[in-house]
Design a protein around this nucleic acid. Sequence first.
DNA 1: CGCTATGTTGATCCATATCAATAAGTGTGG
DNA 2: CCACACTTATTGATATGGATCAACATAGCG
Lengths: 232, 232
Amino acid sequence: MPESEKHHIRSLNVFSQMADSHFDRLTRGAYVQNFPPMIDLIAEGDQSDFLHILLSGSVELYSSWNGRETTMSTVWPVSTFILAATIKDAPYLMSARTLEKSRVVLLPSSDVRETFDADPDFARAIVTELAQCYRSVVRNTKDLKLRSSVERLANYLLRQQKRANGAAVFTLHTEKRRLASSLGMTPENMSRALKNLRAYGVQVDGNRVTITDQSDLEQFAKPSPLIDDYRV
Amino acid sequence: MPESEKHHIRSLNVFSQMADSHFDRLTRGAYVQNFPPMIDLIAEGDQSDFLHILLSGSVELYSSWNGRETTMSTVWPVSTFILAATIKDAPYLMSARTLEKSRVVLLPSSDVRETFDADPDFARAIVTELAQCYRSVVRNTKDLKLRSSVERLANYLLRQQKRANGAAVFTLHTEKRRLASSLGMTPENMSRALKNLRAYGVQVDGNRVTITDQSDLEQFAKPSPLIDDYRV
DNA sequence: CGCTATGTTGATCCATATCAATAAGTGTGG
DNA sequence: CCACACTTATTGATATGGATCAACATAGCG
């Protein structure tokens, strides 16, 4: 791995606090790779040989069963993915594929586990990251079980809007069919759900979303910090 | 906390490897308490002051939104719960209530975090436990998104059967209405789902389940290690 | 022993999926 | 640069899984 790259990675939350010697040891066996879009990086069931860190592009985590497939989440830079499998040295529970041209760091799982044991600061960073991931999945489960599909969509739009600094106009960064799958609905159903939201001041033109009546939409969506605050 | 109790806790996975001095420090501020059934131990949104460890009885983790409520999971002894909130020092995302008379250890969250930083063995145990929790929620999400309610129920029965060492006759340890909620369906719907499963060799009388045609049920349920193996 | 919560069954309704057709992009090769 | 193929998005028609409402049975529990 080139030095410039190392320097970049070093600044990530997970690595920023750890000792130099441990960082060097950890990145010795690591490498960085570029992937074209729609490349499978990981298949569920595989042994977790590497912890992945997405530097640029985007990656879809998905799962299959009995001929069906669902999007579990989308990973944006800079994030690790498949951390739990690495720690438990267990098979991946999700598959991963690039959505666009992506740059990914691969850290040998065994090195990650060794470094975890050796470096308390790294251990701390890892456990914080993992706790964050856990809470995300819990929030997602609440979203799925407590809300209808239109409610999920409405709250998704509000979350995206928040990421766009609250602007009334913002763009969707996810293909609609993928968004539908990640929200647990069919593309057709989502198309209709978007139409339903017109009544609450949502206008959609391609990727461009305009929220004309913020309070109306919020009153309908009833966003909750315990489901929708991706920070906490 | 009485010495006998300390000794018991010491033998748990999370504590068994750690140094004596750290264990003493960690349990100094801890206490053990008995609760009657249906007592709320935790309300979602509260600050996570304590890591909870269930010694006996059972605890339901549940969440609410907009007047609706859903069972997220049921905790059986011996398990920690609300670990991620403790680590992140963030509000609980789920509420917890006892289902039966239960004995619970309460460890001050700040002590847990301090001990995590001080004791690598403890850190290792905690991160393993958390990774396990994460993977459970991921499997549950796959179950919810990839399967119909009847399929979820069929696979639930097979999992319970496995826990009962594969016996053809076993008992449900959960109230049916709670089970329905945890599987993401209504009690009425579950009643009918159980009737549907008669066609695949499932007989239910109260809590007593009899599987008369194992292979038939498995052929229908199509259990997968990546969804149903609670060990991995 | 009666009260209250749980479980079952039936009738009906509704949300969402499925199937089908069309339109609109998007990328590819000539 | 355009024609063509292919995927995605939308819309309509219809089917169906699951929810809701209601009635009743039953089983714990005080």
